[in-house]
Write a protein that binds this DNA or RNA. Structure first.
Length: 277
DNA sequence: CTCGTCACGGTTGAG
DNA sequence: ACCTCAACCGTGACG
């Protein structure tokens, strides 16, 4: 084991799989790695070789490629939360309107109105307790959720410190107001070499942000404006998925941080890679 | 040897 | 503020 990837590092930042790759149990691979899996597959490299090259289990490579072929998205699914969400902005606004028109209205009356007015049907009408919570949190003080967002910006939680952050996961301009926590991931334990300086958005989208398209092209289009994960020049030049403009160099520090571990893990296994994989 | 599948232990976040 | 639980995650093993 390379001293760069000590047990302490592994404990602090993640675990090492049988191939020497670093992962965080329960959390998705970084988008950069997911993108590379798809890139390599599109170049005709076999999944088993991709698995070895990127040090990601073949089951995971298989899953990511299968999903990509099925949906066109490289991004992980929405983790956590509950489905379906019934308290949509539309419903909340309607409840707010009803409450403003009749401040004495009861939650059960609102529920009936939502059904009667066709705003909801019996499958997605909020429960009385949900309506009460909406009245409490979003109607009587409807700046509350905005406060929560700014709070999330200033106090992003600390998970997933091993992975870089990827802005295209939740672009600030389109981040859902209902998923303030998806803006998290900054503020992790400081990595070596100041690599985590660019602190953008990773983990992936929550359910409430799932309307954002996840196609590689969409991601890359967004990526052009912000950060682009590091890609080998030959891959970047040869893959239609990768934008080859001038955005590549200055902003891949977070991805580098992840690759730092990948590389040190590789070297510790006596594997010479040459490529920055 | 390759690859699809699944149990497992884990994280997440709306309700 | 805290809890629940169903969604998702990647790994590792099996066939």
């Amino acid at each position: 084991m390379d001293p760069s990837v000590t047990d302490n590092h592994v404990q602090q930042y993640g675990e090492v799989n049988q191939l020497g790759g670093v992962f965080v149990n329960g959390r998705p691979l970084p988008n950069g790695t997911r993108m590379r899996i798809v890139e390599l597959a599109r170049l005709g490299i076999r999944p088993c070789d991709i698995s070895r090259q990127l040090r990601v289990s073949h089951g995971c490579v298989s899953k990511i490629l299968a999903r990509y072929h099925e949906t066109g998205s490289i991004l992980p699914g929405a983790i956590g939360g509950s489905k379906p969400r019934v308290t949509t902005p539309k419903v909340v606004n309607y409840i707010r309107e009803l409450k403003m028109k009749d401040p004495g209205i009861f939650a059960w009356e609102i529920r009936d109105r939502l059904l009667a007015d066709g705003v909801c049907d019996k499958n997605n009408v909020p429960s009385v307790s949900s309506i009460s919570r909406i009245l409490r949190n979003k109607v009587t003080n409807h700046h509350h959720h905005n406060t929560a967002i700014s709070h999330a910006h200033t106090h992003p939680h600390l998970y997933n410190s091993i992975y870089p952050t990827y802005p295209y996961a939740t672009p600030p301009s389109i981040k859902s107001e209902n998923s303030p926590n998806t803006s998290s991931s900054c503020g992790s334990p400081s990595p070596p070499n100041n690599i985590m300086r660019n602190c953008h958005h990773w983990p992936p989208l929550s359910h409430s942000a799932a309307h954002i398209t996840h196609s590689v092209n969409d991601i890359l289009n967004f990526n052009q404006k912000f950060v682009q994960p590091q890609t080998s020049p030959q891959l970047a030049a040869s893959s239609p998925m990768m934008n080859t403009h001038d955005t590549q160099n200055s902003h891949s520090q977070n991805y580098n941080y992840y690759m730092y571990f990948q590389n040190t893990a590789m070297h510790s296994n006596g594997i010479s890679t040459g490529a920055n994989l």
